[in-house]
Design a binder for these strands. Structure first.
Lengths: 225, 225
DNA sequence: GAATGAAGCGGAGGGCCCTCCGTTATGCCT
DNA sequence: AGGCATAACGGAGGGCCCTCCGCTTCATTC
C-alpha cells in the first residue's frame, strides 16, 4: 500500500515560476557539429548514459501508463538509477512524458498536411481535432506540449512544430474562406488545452468531441460578412 | 532569500486522485438547524477558531496577492497558526483561494441576470465574458472553481451557481435563437478554463479577449440552419 | 464557579519535487 | 596500456504538501 499523498497540481500564475534547463550533452563545448547535432535533447554519447536513458524510459512508460501521476522518485528507483540521473536526462517531468509521447505527437503533426491533401481545409481541421479527441495519449501529449510551453519553458523543441501544424490548417481554411483570416495558431492551441481537464471517466470522449466542435465553429468565417 | 523550489503544478489524470474533505463545523452532530446553517463551510462557532480563520484569510489575501503561489506553510506561520489549523479551516488550497475570491465570484454570478435584463442575450454573454477577461481576480477565481470541480472535488458549493449562471445566459440565447440550443453549460465553463493558462505578462488580456470572442462565436446558432 | 466533553490546535511525519556538488567511470589521446 | 579531462552518476538536503492524532481550550451544564 503506497501512500496517500495527493499530488499538488498547483494552479499558479505562470509568471511566478522560474524555468528549468536541461543539461545532458550540453557540457561538451560542442566542437564542430559532427553531423546530426540537435542542441539540448541530444542523445547522450556515453554508453552508460545511453543505457540509463533507455532504462528510465522503459520504466516510465509502464509506470505512467498505470498511473499518470507516478512519482519520479519511484521511477528512478525502479530504473536503478539515482534521482539526480533521472533529472539530468529529463530536466522536467514534462520532458520525460514528452519523450514518451514524442512519436504520437509527431504523427499527429504529420497528419495535418496529409489531411489537407485529402480534404478541404475545414474538414481537415475537423478530422485533425477528432484524432486528438479520440486518442487519449494524444490528448495528454498535447496537454504536455501546451503545459510546458505555457510555463515559460520556451520548449520550442516540441511546441513550435505543433503551432506550425495548426497554422497550416488555419491558413488553408483562411485561403478558401471557410475559416476566419488572421487567426492566431497559439490561441487555437490554447483552446485545445481544455481537453486534458476533462475527466476521461465521466463521458470524457463525448464531451471532448462536443467542445472541439464548438471550437471549430468559433474558427469558421462569419458568414454574414 | 527564500528558496528556489519550483512548484509542481502537476498534470495528472484527474481520475488518479482521491479527494479531500473539509472538517470544520462538521464534528457537531448539528442539532436542529438554528437559522442559517450552511453545511461544511459553516463558520466555526468557537471564538478562537473564528479569529484564527480571519487571521489566516487576512494573511493569505496579501500573501497570495504578492505571489499567487505563496506556500501554505508560510501563510500558516505568518498567521501565527499551525499548519494543521490552516488545513482544518481550508481543507484544500482551492478552498482558501475560493474564500478570498468568493465575493468577486458571487458578484460575477449576479451579473448574469442583470446583464440579461439590460441587453439581448448574445450581447449579455459577451459582456459577461468581458468582465471575466478584464478582472484578473475573476479569471483566477474562475480558474479555481473549475479546477476544484474538475478534480472530482464535487465542490458544488461554488460550482453549481456558476454553472447555473452560464445556463441562464445560454438558455436566453437559445430562446431568442442567437445561440445554439441544447448547449451544455459545463462545456462552456470548461472552455473558460483556458483563461488561466494565459500568461498575464505577455499580452494576456488581449489574448483572453480574442479567445473569448472565438468561444462566443462557437456558441452562436448556425445561421445556415 | 467547577466540571466536562467536544471543537479546535499544532506539529511531527511521510511522501514528493528538484538542485547541488563531491565522486565515479568512460572515451580519448599519447 | 596508462593517464586525463570531464560527462555522468547519485544521493543528501532544502522546501512543500497534506494527514494524523495527542493535547489544549472553549462553551456549556450543573
Amino acid at each position: 500500500m503506497p501512500s496517500t499523498y495527493r499530488r499538488p497540481l498547483r494552479l499558479a500564475n505562470p509568471a511566478d515560476r522560474p524555468h528549468p534547463t536541461g543539461r545532458i550533452g550540453t557540457d561538451r563545448p560542442m566542437g564542430r557539429p559532427t553531423a546530426v547535432n540537435p542542441p539540448p535533447p541530444a542523445k547522450p554519447t556515453r554508453k552508460d548514459a545511453l543505457s540509463n536513458r533507455e532504462r528510465i524510459l522503459t520504466v516510465a512508460r509502464t509506470a505512467l501508463a498505470e498511473s499518470s501521476s507516478a512519482s519520479l522518485t519511484a521511477i528512478a528507483k525502479q530504473a536503478g538509477v539515482g534521482i539526480g540521473t533521472l533529472y539530468r536526462h529529463f530536466p522536467t517531468r514534462e520532458a520525460l512524458v514528452m519523450e514518451l509521447y514524442r512519436h504520437d505527437i509527431q504523427r499527429l503533426i504529420d497528419r495535418a498536411p496529409e489531411l489537407l491533401r485529402e480534404h478541404p481545409p475545414l474538414e481537415a481541421l475537423r478530422l485533425w481535432f477528432d484524432e486528438i479527441a479520440h486518442y487519449g495519449r494524444l490528448k495528454y501529449g498535447v496537454a504536455e506540449v501546451i503545459h510546458a510551453a505555457t510555463n515559460g519553458g520556451r520548449d520550442d523543441e516540441n511546441y513550435a512544430p505543433f503551432v506550425r501544424a495548426i497554422a497550416l490548417l488555419l491558413d488553408a481554411g483562411a485561403a478558401d474562406g471557410t475559416l476566419k483570416p488572421g487567426l492566431d495558431p497559439e490561441d487555437v492551441l490554447l483552446q485545445l488545452s481544455v481537453l486534458w481537464r476533462i475527466d476521461p471517466a465521466r463521458g470524457g470522449e463525448e464531451r471532448a468531441r462536443r467542445i472541439l466542435a464548438l471550437v471549430v465553429d468559433g474558427l469558421r468565417a462569419a458568414p454574414d460578412a
